[in-house]
Design a protein around this nucleic acid. Structure first.
Length: 168
DNA sequence: GCCAACGTTGGC
DNA sequence: GCCAACGTTGGC
C-alpha cells in the first residue's frame, strides 16, 4: 500500500464535505493535470492512505485522513458540458481524465500546519512544502505518514488503528 | 520544436 | 493583494 497527500481548497471541497457524503465516499474528480492524472489512473489503488490537505487558507494544513476505495476510472465530469470541469476533448472512448473514490477516515485532533511540517525532520522533506509545487496528488512516504499521525497527537496504538483503518 | 505570452495556483 | 512558479497555448 502507498500513501498520498490530496490537496483541496476547503471553500471548494472540504474534509467536512467528505465526511457528510453517504458512507463518507466521494469521487476525487476535476483533476486536470497530466502528472496527477497519471497517478490517479495508474498508481493510486484501493487501500492507499490519503492525507487530506486544505490549501489556499490562512493556515494551510493536513486536517484529516481518508482512504482510497476505488481505483482509477474515467472522470465523467469531463464529458458533461454543464460541469465546470468539462473538457471538449474527452469522449466515451477516450475519457482523457480519471478519478478515484476516497472515503473519510477521521479528522486529526489538531491540524498539522506547514510550520509544523517544516519543524519536523521527516516532514520537512514533503513535496507540499516545496515552493511552486502545484500537484494536487502527491506521493507521501510511510515515514511521513506515520510522522503526521504522531505529530497529530495520536497515541501509537491509535495511530496503528488509523493505519489499519486506511488499509481497510 | 522553440519559446514568449498568458492563465492559474497557492503561500505569504 | 502580491508575486513566484508552473503548465498550457499558439505563433513561427
Amino acid at each position: 500500500m502507498k500513501y498520498w497527500l490530496f490537496k483541496t481548497e476547503p471553500s471548494c471541497f472540504s474534509l467536512q464535505d467528505l465526511k457528510e457524503r453517504p458512507e463518507g465516499i466521494e469521487p476525487w474528480d476535476g483533476v486536470r493535470n497530466y502528472q496527477a492524472r497519471n497517478l490517479l489512473r495508474d498508481v493510486v489503488k484501493p487501500g492507499d492512505g490519503v492525507l487530506f490537505y486544505h490549501s489556499n487558507i490562512p493556515r494551510p494544513a493536513v486536517v484529516g485522513l481518508a482512504r482510497v476505495v476505488r481505483e482509477g476510472y474515467p472522470d465523467a465530469t469531463a464529458l458533461n458540458p454543464e460541469s465546470a470541469h468539462f473538457d471538449p476533448r474527452a469522449t466515451e472512448k477516450d475519457p482523457v481524465w480519471y478519478r478515484v473514490d476516497i472515503q473519510y477516515v477521521c479528522s486529526l485532533p489538531a491540524p498539522i500546519t506547514r510550520q509544523d511540517m517544516r519543524c519536523h525532520p521527516v516532514l520537512a522533506g514533503m513535496d507540499v512544502l516545496k515552493k511552486g509545487n502545484r500537484l494536487s496528488v502527491q506521493p507521501v512516504s510511510r515515514q511521513q505518514w506515520l510522522a503526521i499521525l504522531s505529530l497529530a497527537g495520536l497515541q501509537d496504538s491509535l495511530a496503528d488503528c488509523m493505519d489499519r483503518a486506511v488499509q481497510g
